[in-house]
Amino acid sequence: MIAFVIRRLLQSLIVMLTVGFVAFSMFNFLGDPINNMVGQDATEAEREHLRHVLGLDQPFYIQFLVYLGNALQGQFGMSYRLGMPVVRALAERLPATLELVFCAAGLALLVGVPLGVYTGLHRDRWLSKVFLTLSLIGISLPTFLIGILLILVFAVYLGWLPSFGRGDVVDLGWWTTGFLTVSGIKALILPAITLALFQLTLVMRLVRAEMMEVLRTDYIKFARARGLTNRAVHFGHALRNTLVPVITITGLQIGSLIAFAIVTETVFQWPGMGLLFLQAVQFVDVPVMSSYLVLIAFFFVAINLVVDLLYYFVDPRLRADRAVASGHG
């Protein structure tokens, strides 16, 4: 178990180094950074001087090490556009995105898993067919369209919910939350549903497929032959066996939710990282772009680590360090 964690941590480190290198390279490939800093009329000598002061005349691996050193100390440079440290800019936006993403992920799981179980158990009921048809719509409609439709219905026609922004937020010092005010929660509903819908249908279809697969296995038949109640068979035995793939997909999806909340954030003008990133791209704000890349990679790596650890709790076959007989897993 410990060896496994160490191995995974080392792998994570390699991934982060690679991503760091890519992020670092962005500075050199997206134009000469000196050009971005000095005016048009700076002399060649001034440029050389600045280049030397900033250490840009060093070989790239020295520069990369310096970059890594700074990154480890939480220094990712100044945003060209905002004129403030990138870390501060990201930290200001991070709570908005994370609150949105976790609400969306929670919604997707809380609704998606039960629907998946229901449609998996009762394949032939008309309600299952209704859910499946609806899920097809959820999977095929693009996010921005769903967002706009929701705004049209609930903000424009009905006027129940705000169409943009985050509402009033409470500043906790290191974190700003929208959960503590009515307007914050109201503002969260539409974007969370928009972001969750695709994941929800994905989780539902996945759970359904896995349930149908598991229900055909011998141990389910044997569980029935032992006279266990339907409840025990379906939820105790079948559902738990569907969890490993569901955890995998959910983990990966939370990563992509964070990374690709951009569209939803744009539609709802949600003041999160996605919006920040989009603006950074428009202004070629390289420090923000590269730091965003590193941050997202960090989330992916961290989530995958958590997912791998969750396997251990779900599946005893992975837990056994000293398996007596060979399993088939």
């Binding site: 011998d218 141990y219 044997f222 569980a223 029935r224 035995h237 066996n241 599946d315 005893p316 088939h328």
Partner: peptide, 24 residues
């Protein structure tokens, strides 16, 4: 269901797949 297990037990062919792998 109440009869299965209580009055009629069953044993299946493949012991490797008859037991749920996730429970002791």
């Amino acid at each position: 269901r109440r009869i299965r297990g209580k009055h009629i037990g069953a044993i299946f062919q493949d012991p490797l797949t008859s037991l749920n792998p996730l429970y002791s």
